[in-house]
Write a protein that binds this DNA or RNA. Structure first.
Ligand code: FES
Ligand code: FES
Lengths: 142, 142
DNA sequence: TTATTAAAGGACAATATGGTCTTTTTGTAT
DNA sequence: ATACAAAAAGACCATATTGTCCTTTAATAA
């Protein structure tokens, strides 16, 4: 489904939000361990997300990552656009340069429906909504 | 959706089948041009598909690629398994090592449905069924 | 103020994917 | 038999992705 960078970003952010709910600000070592991802690579990815404005961080003792409570929830589609580019789920499944209803490829009829449902999923769900599910239903992050 | 190799393989095979329907056996130069793919890379991919037994080829004058009429239609899922590995559409959308109904990730509930519909699509459709659609409805390969 | 902690930054390496080109082999037509 | 055409084979290169590690910066606590 997603590439590694997106996976680590997604799992990492959900873990951070989950800890924020418990009034904690986890650091890279803890995060990487909990989501079973390479520590330094995860750190680099989180850095980028901070620079992109999705997330905040604090250096030094007691530091770590956290979400700005004043910001709106982060839709997965925003995250994916940042990590994989914004045409991930708009392009043709057959590999044509553009998906065009009027000049469809032989996959279009069935694929377009699926693509729409993926877009709905990643627009409806947010890092926060996933963290809530994990919290309430005691789901897994690894 | 798919990686480049799978895309070129898919478009190439559909083009070959389409030409076979017209009693022609296209070669690598023609195929690559018609599907707008890199010529030598396409040639290499087709070689692999021949070795994998999906396709046949003839060298020399009048040679080219063609499907064995006695073989059953080639499901897209078989092709994708060969090019991308067989766990492409069975793994967890959140990146967990295994997708498990009993220990679901927070994406599972909605993602599993979509994944099922992808699996249905690539099981139902075959290279031949796509070629038929292109033939009957005069659809696009590029 | 100083020691400590943790993120930021950046160099570097490994691997996978995507792509090009040349030579060899094999089949066909003449 | 010979020339030619086209796939097969394989060396090689480019780029993107994934991953590691070391140094610097900034924040906190003592
Ligand atoms: S044209 Fe291929 S998916 Fe729309
Ligand atoms: S557990 Fe993640 S998709 Fe099933």
């Amino acid at each position: 489904m997603f590439n590694k960078e997106t996976e680590y970003a997604l799992r990492g952010l959900v873990y951070i939000k989950l800890q924020n709910l418990k009034n904690r600000r986890p650091g890279t070592t803890e995060i990487a361990k909990e989501i079973e991802a390479p520590q330094f690579y995860t750190a680099k990815i989180l850095q980028r997300l901070v620079r992109a404005g999705f997330l905040r961080s604090l250096k030094g003792k007691g530091g770590g990552f956290f979400f700005d409570p004043d910001k709106p929830d982060l839709q997965l589609i925003k995250l994916i656009s940042a990590t994989e580019g914004d045409k991930s789920y708009s392009s043709c499944g057959f590999g044509l340069k553009h998906c065009d209803n009027d000049k469809p490829c032989p996959l279009h009829e069935k694929y377009a429906v699926i693509r729409d449902s993926i877009n709905k999923l990643i627009s409806d769900e947010t890092v926060q909504s996933l963290a809530e599910k994990v919290y309430k239903k005691e789901l897994n992050l690894r």
